[in-house]
Design a protein around this nucleic acid. Sequence first.
DNA 1: GATTGCTGGTTGCGATCTGCAACCACTCCG
DNA 2: CGGAGTGGTTGCAGATCGCAACCAGCAATC
Lengths: 165, 165
Amino acid sequence: MAEKRSGCPINLSLEVIGDKWSLLVIRDMTFGNRRHFRELLTSSEEGIASNILADRLQRLVEAGLITRAPDPSHKQKVVYSLAEPGIQLVPVMAALGSWGRRHLPVSRELSIRAELLERGGPALWEDFMDELRELHLGKARPDGARSVLAHLTEAYLAEVARAEN
Amino acid sequence: MAEKRSGCPINLSLEVIGDKWSLLVIRDMTFGNRRHFRELLTSSEEGIASNILADRLQRLVEAGLITRAPDPSHKQKVVYSLAEPGIQLVPVMAALGSWGRRHLPVSRELSIRAELLERGGPALWEDFMDELRELHLGKARPDGARSVLAHLTEAYLAEVARAEN
DNA sequence: GATTGCTGGTTGCGATCTGCAACCACTCCG
DNA sequence: CGGAGTGGTTGCAGATCGCAACCAGCAATC
């Protein structure tokens, strides 16, 4: 954070999320709705180490992408939430997912969400971001608004079930 | 490259371009039309070191994002070109640029391109990618097709000139 | 035909980051 | 009180990074 190699938007973005783990943490919070340290640690597909996770969470809080708050239900628990800048990474993850799906050896189960995000386009991303604002920032939204998260998760689980048969 | 922590598209993408330099090299090739080692080395806003540049170029070639070819005009010269997967990173860079422009302390000159890419939307990106296919892959395209690169570069230079006054 | 400069790199080395495993203080539940 | 669960911290070996210095081959210059 001290550094600032140049004022280029791409460069500055990379200085914040240009490493192998930060965006995966955001991804799990966004698509997996994981909010606690242990959830992020043990449910990670890639097996992040606890010290790396602690470091990344701290950095992301400092950078303003996520927030950290005590959980009233348990005095030692901590809830991590996406802040607005973190929520707005949805299009970035969608673009990255589309690219990876096209050019890299992805697994079908894990790429179904990327496919749906790509097909849904910006309109779907906006709905998803509104849903995240509700989940993470407590902003109410109109009754009957579709749950993109549930849609994505169902599709993922269906693929998992299909792969097992 | 040997690793493959998971089959998630986002994770796999990060394993290829998830570091602080790879995407900057692609950016300079894409928006600055830099094709030679020295160009990439000395014109880099961020001051990449030569060993890092050499390493990243090699990795990007191995990953299939760019190609390396001898330059007929000078037996020791080498030309680096974007391959199709590298060209298709345009939407990723556009998304990353939009995000950075919104949430980070960018400089005006360097963010004008991100702004134009954002305003132009996917239609502009497609034209730009077609132009890159012509420049890097030699694929002809219809006469009279607009040059997005020239447009972006002019806007950038105009901003530089404006900042000096 | 020696010099000078440009070409794409390589080498050495210290600092930093990564990844694994073990450990810790605290809190809630029974 | 005992045990499971909480968010982490600590130690340490190995990999990676980043800077600076250096290098051999080629081409134009003097």
